[in-house]
Amino acid sequence: MYLDYFLVFLGAAIPWLELGLVIPLGIISGMNPVAVIIVGFVGNMVTVLALIIGYDKFKLWLTKRNEGKEKKESKRSVRAKELWNKYGLPGMLMLGPILIGTHVAAFIAMTLGASKVKTMLWSTISISAWAIIFGVVTSLGFDFFVRE
């Protein structure tokens, strides 16, 4: 049983899996929805906070790694900049989990000059809101199909 929750934690912590996949899968597999939401939230927050806190070191490492290489922006980076320009930090981080991923949204926010404190605040709000939304919608939707 604890292994299942550990896998939810781990899945939520991994970029590109995140909340939108892990929480519904956990609930559909029969796990407690409230526990899945909490574990998924914590798993995602741990790595996003680590990214925000360690951003300066990561940026330095990435710069050294990419020295002399031609840099091409990814589709996710382009989408994140569009979100930033249109909605600002709160909008980008609130839409991030469903459009580009929480980790990418936080990283791009930091790259575009957002403060660590504001990025942490909006990431926390966004991740908690989306964890609840994914959990509730999955629980209600799954319950709808299971009812006789």
Score class of each variant (00 low, 15 high):
Asn32Gln: 12
Thr119Tyr: 05
Leu62Val: 12
Phe58Cys: 12
Arg65Ala: 13
Tyr55Leu: 12
Met31Lys: 11
Phe58Trp: 13
Leu60Thr: 15
Phe58Ser: 14
Val22His: 07
Gly135Leu: 01
Glu70Trp: 11
Phe58Val: 14
Ala114Gly: 07
Leu49Trp: 13
Arg76Gln: 06
Ala35Asn: 09
Val104Met: 10
Val34Cys: 10
Asp4Ser: 09
Val104Trp: 08
Ile27Met: 03
Leu95Tyr: 06
Tyr2Pro: 06
Ala105Lys: 03
Asp4Met: 04
His103Gly: 06
Thr102Arg: 01
Gly43Met: 02
Phe144Arg: 01
Met92Gly: 04
Ile127Val: 14
Gly88His: 14
Asp143Glu: 08
Val48Ile: 07
Lys59Gln: 14
Tyr55Thr: 12
Leu89Ser: 15
Arg147Gly: 03
Leu112Ile: 04
Val48His: 02
Phe9Gly: 02
Ala35Asp: 09
Leu17Cys: 06
Thr124Ser: 15
Gly88Lys: 13
Glu82Asp: 13
Ala80Gly: 03
Val8Thr: 11
Lys64Met: 15
Ser29Glu: 04
Leu49Phe: 14
Val39Asn: 07
Ala80Asn: 04
Phe41Tyr: 12
Leu21Tyr: 00
Trp84Met: 09
Glu18Cys: 02
Phe107His: 06
Leu21Thr: 00
Gly20Cys: 02
Asp143Lys: 07
Ile52Trp: 11
Ala106His: 03
Pro33Tyr: 12
Thr119Met: 02
Glu70Phe: 13
Tyr2Asn: 14
Lys116Ala: 10
Thr47Leu: 05
Ala12Arg: 01
Lys69Ser: 08
Tyr2Trp: 15
Leu140Gly: 02
Val104His: 06
Ile108Gln: 07
Leu19Asp: 00
Leu140Tyr: 01
Arg79Pro: 13
Pro24Ser: 03
Asn44Tyr: 00
Leu89Thr: 12
Leu99Pro: 01
Phe9Met: 02
